[in-house]
Amino acid sequence: MKLLEIDDLHVSVQGKEILKGITLSVPEGELHAIMGPNGSGKSTLSYTLAGREGYEVTRGQVLYRGDDLTALSPDRRAALGVFLALQYPVEIPGVVTLTFLKVALNAQRRARGEQEFDAVQVLRSVRQNAAALNIPEDMLKRPLNAGFSGGEKKRMEILQMALFEPRLAILDETDSGLDIDALRLVASGVNAQRAPDRGILVITHYQRLLDYIVPDRVHVLAGGRIVRSGGPDLALELEKSGYGAVVEVA
Protein backbone atom coordinates (compact mmCIF):
# COMPACT_ATOMS: atom_id res chain seq x y z
CA MET A 1 0.00 0.00 0.00
CA LYS A 2 1.05 3.59 -0.64
CA LEU A 3 1.72 5.31 2.66
CA LEU A 4 1.90 8.76 1.15
CA GLU A 5 0.60 9.87 -2.22
CA ILE A 6 1.06 13.44 -3.27
CA ASP A 7 -0.60 14.33 -6.54
CA ASP A 8 -0.15 17.61 -8.44
CA LEU A 9 0.22 19.54 -5.20
CA HIS A 10 0.15 23.33 -5.46
CA VAL A 11 0.72 25.37 -2.33
CA SER A 12 0.63 29.10 -1.81
CA VAL A 13 2.00 31.05 1.12
CA GLN A 14 0.63 34.54 1.63
CA GLY A 15 -0.81 34.49 -1.84
CA LYS A 16 2.44 33.45 -3.49
CA GLU A 17 2.63 30.06 -5.15
CA ILE A 18 5.64 28.14 -3.82
CA LEU A 19 4.88 24.51 -4.73
CA LYS A 20 3.87 24.21 -8.35
CA GLY A 21 2.59 20.73 -8.92
CA ILE A 22 4.40 18.08 -6.91
CA THR A 23 3.69 14.43 -7.54
CA LEU A 24 5.39 11.92 -5.32
CA SER A 25 4.56 8.71 -3.57
CA VAL A 26 6.17 6.79 -0.76
CA PRO A 27 5.17 3.15 -0.37
CA GLU A 28 5.23 1.48 3.03
CA GLY A 29 8.66 0.30 4.05
CA GLU A 30 10.56 2.84 1.94
CA LEU A 31 12.81 5.74 2.71
CA HIS A 32 12.90 8.55 0.17
CA ALA A 33 15.24 11.49 0.06
CA ILE A 34 14.28 14.91 -1.22
CA MET A 35 17.17 17.10 -2.22
CA GLY A 36 17.25 20.54 -3.61
CA PRO A 37 18.86 23.94 -3.47
CA ASN A 38 17.92 26.56 -0.90
CA GLY A 39 14.58 28.14 -1.50
CA SER A 40 13.32 25.31 -3.69
CA GLY A 41 10.33 24.62 -1.44
CA LYS A 42 11.53 21.72 0.72
CA SER A 43 10.40 23.22 4.02
CA THR A 44 7.19 24.41 2.42
CA LEU A 45 6.45 20.83 1.45
CA SER A 46 7.18 19.55 4.95
CA TYR A 47 5.02 22.22 6.63
CA THR A 48 2.23 21.44 4.22
CA LEU A 49 2.38 17.77 5.05
CA ALA A 50 2.29 18.57 8.78
CA GLY A 51 -0.67 20.92 8.33
CA ARG A 52 0.76 24.28 9.25
CA GLU A 53 -1.65 27.18 9.04
CA GLY A 54 -0.98 29.57 6.18
CA TYR A 55 0.18 26.88 3.77
CA GLU A 56 -2.75 26.87 1.43
CA VAL A 57 -3.29 23.92 -0.87
CA THR A 58 -4.70 25.47 -4.02
CA ARG A 59 -4.67 22.38 -6.21
CA GLY A 60 -3.97 18.67 -6.01
CA GLN A 61 -4.18 16.33 -3.06
CA VAL A 62 -2.27 14.56 -0.32
CA LEU A 63 -3.37 11.07 0.61
CA TYR A 64 -2.05 9.37 3.71
CA ARG A 65 -2.86 5.69 3.86
CA GLY A 66 -5.58 6.38 1.33
CA ASP A 67 -7.24 9.28 3.17
CA ASP A 68 -7.08 12.97 2.41
CA LEU A 69 -4.86 14.73 4.92
CA THR A 70 -5.30 18.32 3.88
CA ALA A 71 -8.34 19.15 6.02
CA LEU A 72 -6.84 17.87 9.28
CA SER A 73 -5.22 20.01 11.98
CA PRO A 74 -1.57 19.29 12.83
CA ASP A 75 -2.44 17.50 16.08
CA ARG A 76 -4.86 15.17 14.28
CA ARG A 77 -2.18 14.32 11.75
CA ALA A 78 0.29 13.62 14.53
CA ALA A 79 -2.19 11.29 16.19
CA LEU A 80 -2.57 9.45 12.88
CA GLY A 81 1.18 8.87 12.81
CA VAL A 82 2.61 11.76 10.81
CA PHE A 83 5.75 13.25 12.31
CA LEU A 84 7.77 16.24 11.17
CA ALA A 85 11.25 16.95 12.49
CA LEU A 86 11.64 20.68 11.96
CA GLN A 87 14.56 22.29 10.22
CA TYR A 88 14.52 24.86 13.00
CA PRO A 89 13.13 23.29 16.20
CA VAL A 90 11.28 25.82 18.34
CA GLU A 91 12.20 26.85 21.87
CA ILE A 92 9.40 26.50 24.40
CA PRO A 93 10.54 28.50 27.44
CA GLY A 94 9.57 27.16 30.85
CA VAL A 95 8.15 23.88 29.56
CA VAL A 96 10.35 21.10 30.83
CA THR A 97 11.31 18.71 28.03
CA LEU A 98 10.09 15.65 29.86
CA THR A 99 6.74 17.31 30.55
CA PHE A 100 6.36 18.26 26.92
CA LEU A 101 7.13 14.73 25.79
CA LYS A 102 4.61 13.26 28.20
CA VAL A 103 1.87 15.72 27.25
CA ALA A 104 2.48 15.14 23.54
CA LEU A 105 2.69 11.39 23.77
CA ASN A 106 -0.47 11.15 25.83
CA ALA A 107 -2.34 13.61 23.64
CA GLN A 108 -1.62 11.35 20.66
CA ARG A 109 -2.62 8.25 22.57
CA ARG A 110 -5.81 9.86 23.82
CA ALA A 111 -6.74 10.92 20.29
CA ARG A 112 -6.30 7.32 19.16
CA GLY A 113 -8.39 6.00 22.02
CA GLU A 114 -5.40 4.34 23.68
CA GLN A 115 -4.64 4.24 27.37
CA GLU A 116 -2.43 7.12 28.50
CA PHE A 117 1.00 6.40 29.92
CA ASP A 118 1.85 7.29 33.48
CA ALA A 119 4.92 9.31 34.37
CA VAL A 120 7.01 6.22 35.08
CA GLN A 121 6.24 4.60 31.74
CA VAL A 122 7.03 7.79 29.87
CA LEU A 123 10.26 8.28 31.75
CA ARG A 124 11.41 4.73 31.04
CA SER A 125 10.74 5.06 27.35
CA VAL A 126 12.32 8.51 27.09
CA ARG A 127 15.43 7.40 28.95
CA GLN A 128 15.95 4.40 26.69
CA ASN A 129 15.75 6.50 23.56
CA ALA A 130 17.79 9.33 25.03
CA ALA A 131 20.64 7.00 25.89
CA ALA A 132 20.81 5.75 22.29
CA LEU A 133 21.12 9.35 21.09
CA ASN A 134 23.63 10.39 23.72
CA ILE A 135 21.20 12.89 25.22
CA PRO A 136 22.13 13.51 28.84
CA GLU A 137 19.52 13.19 31.57
CA ASP A 138 19.78 16.83 32.64
CA MET A 139 18.75 18.01 29.18
CA LEU A 140 15.41 16.31 29.74
CA LYS A 141 14.86 18.46 32.81
CA ARG A 142 15.55 21.70 31.00
CA PRO A 143 12.88 23.66 29.13
CA LEU A 144 12.44 22.23 25.65
CA ASN A 145 15.09 23.44 23.18
CA ALA A 146 15.68 26.59 25.26
CA GLY A 147 19.40 27.31 25.08
CA PHE A 148 20.08 23.95 23.39
CA SER A 149 22.83 23.96 20.78
CA GLY A 150 21.87 23.33 17.17
CA GLY A 151 23.01 19.72 17.41
CA GLU A 152 21.13 19.17 20.67
CA LYS A 153 17.94 20.47 19.14
CA LYS A 154 18.25 18.11 16.19
CA ARG A 155 18.90 15.13 18.43
CA MET A 156 15.86 16.12 20.47
CA GLU A 157 13.79 15.95 17.30
CA ILE A 158 15.04 12.44 16.63
CA LEU A 159 14.31 11.48 20.23
CA GLN A 160 10.73 12.58 19.70
CA MET A 161 10.49 10.58 16.51
CA ALA A 162 11.76 7.50 18.32
CA LEU A 163 9.30 8.05 21.16
CA PHE A 164 6.21 8.61 19.02
CA GLU A 165 6.98 5.81 16.56
CA PRO A 166 5.29 7.55 13.63
CA ARG A 167 4.04 5.74 10.55
CA LEU A 168 5.35 8.54 8.36
CA ALA A 169 8.35 10.59 9.42
CA ILE A 170 9.44 13.69 7.55
CA LEU A 171 12.88 14.98 8.48
CA ASP A 172 13.56 18.50 7.30
CA GLU A 173 17.31 19.04 7.08
CA THR A 174 17.87 17.24 10.34
CA ASP A 175 21.46 16.74 9.25
CA SER A 176 22.44 20.35 8.72
CA GLY A 177 24.64 21.85 11.38
CA LEU A 178 25.65 18.49 12.83
CA ASP A 179 29.22 17.41 13.40
CA ILE A 180 30.19 13.97 12.18
CA ASP A 181 29.54 12.19 15.49
CA ALA A 182 26.12 13.73 15.86
CA LEU A 183 25.38 12.91 12.23
CA ARG A 184 26.16 9.26 12.86
CA LEU A 185 23.91 9.19 15.91
CA VAL A 186 21.06 10.80 14.03
CA ALA A 187 21.54 8.48 11.08
CA SER A 188 21.43 5.39 13.23
CA GLY A 189 18.35 6.81 14.95
CA VAL A 190 16.69 7.16 11.56
CA ASN A 191 17.77 3.73 10.36
CA ALA A 192 16.28 2.24 13.51
CA GLN A 193 12.93 3.62 12.43
CA ARG A 194 12.90 1.76 9.14
CA ALA A 195 10.26 -0.94 9.16
CA PRO A 196 8.02 -2.69 6.63
CA ASP A 197 4.92 -0.73 7.63
CA ARG A 198 6.58 2.66 7.94
CA GLY A 199 7.87 5.30 5.59
CA ILE A 200 10.42 8.06 5.91
CA LEU A 201 10.95 11.22 3.90
CA VAL A 202 14.42 12.64 4.46
CA ILE A 203 14.85 16.19 3.26
CA THR A 204 18.45 17.21 2.92
CA HIS A 205 20.61 19.73 1.25
CA TYR A 206 23.72 17.57 1.27
CA GLN A 207 24.65 14.14 0.02
CA ARG A 208 26.67 13.59 3.23
CA LEU A 209 23.74 12.16 5.22
CA LEU A 210 23.05 9.63 2.48
CA ASP A 211 26.38 7.98 3.20
CA TYR A 212 24.77 6.73 6.39
CA ILE A 213 21.15 6.48 5.36
CA VAL A 214 20.69 4.71 2.07
CA PRO A 215 17.46 5.84 0.42
CA ASP A 216 15.22 3.73 -1.77
CA ARG A 217 14.53 6.74 -3.98
CA VAL A 218 15.94 10.22 -4.42
CA HIS A 219 13.93 13.18 -5.70
CA VAL A 220 15.25 16.54 -6.71
CA LEU A 221 13.10 19.54 -5.88
CA ALA A 222 13.73 22.81 -7.66
CA GLY A 223 11.53 25.83 -8.14
CA GLY A 224 8.61 24.12 -6.43
CA ARG A 225 8.66 21.08 -8.71
CA ILE A 226 10.21 17.63 -8.63
CA VAL A 227 12.63 17.88 -11.52
CA ARG A 228 14.16 14.43 -11.31
CA SER A 229 13.73 11.16 -9.46
CA GLY A 230 16.05 8.20 -9.33
CA GLY A 231 17.80 5.59 -7.23
CA PRO A 232 20.51 6.19 -4.60
CA ASP A 233 23.00 6.96 -7.36
CA LEU A 234 21.24 10.21 -8.15
CA ALA A 235 22.50 11.63 -4.87
CA LEU A 236 26.09 10.87 -5.85
CA GLU A 237 25.59 12.44 -9.23
CA LEU A 238 24.29 15.60 -7.57
CA GLU A 239 27.27 15.65 -5.28
CA LYS A 240 29.60 15.52 -8.26
CA SER A 241 27.96 17.88 -10.69
CA GLY A 242 25.92 20.13 -8.39
CA TYR A 243 22.25 21.10 -8.55
CA GLY A 244 22.81 23.40 -11.47
CA ALA A 245 23.33 20.64 -14.00
CA VAL A 246 20.34 18.62 -12.83
CA VAL A 247 18.02 21.57 -12.74
CA GLU A 248 19.06 22.62 -16.23
CA VAL A 249 18.50 19.20 -17.71
CA ALA A 250 14.92 19.25 -16.40
Binding site: R52, D75, A78, F83, L86, P89, I92, G94, F100, A107
Partner: peptide, 23 residues
Protein backbone atom coordinates in the same frame (compact mmCIF):
# COMPACT_ATOMS: atom_id res chain seq x y z
CA UNK B 1 2.51 24.90 15.46
CA UNK B 2 5.40 23.01 16.98
CA UNK B 3 3.35 21.78 19.91
CA UNK B 4 0.39 20.89 17.71
CA UNK B 5 2.57 19.04 15.22
CA UNK B 6 3.59 16.85 18.15
CA UNK B 7 -0.04 15.93 18.71
CA UNK B 8 -1.11 18.50 21.31
CA UNK B 9 -4.52 20.05 20.53
CA UNK B 10 -4.57 23.82 20.24
CA UNK B 11 -6.11 24.76 23.59
CA UNK B 12 -3.90 22.33 25.43
CA UNK B 13 -0.91 23.71 23.56
CA UNK B 14 -1.79 27.25 24.63
CA UNK B 15 -2.20 26.11 28.22
CA UNK B 16 1.15 24.33 28.11
CA UNK B 17 2.97 27.32 26.65
CA UNK B 18 1.35 29.69 29.15
CA UNK B 19 2.25 27.38 32.01
CA UNK B 20 5.82 27.47 30.76
CA UNK B 21 5.67 31.25 30.72
CA UNK B 22 4.49 31.17 34.35
CA UNK B 23 6.88 28.50 35.54
Amino acid sequence: FYAMARGIPEEEAVALIVNGFCR
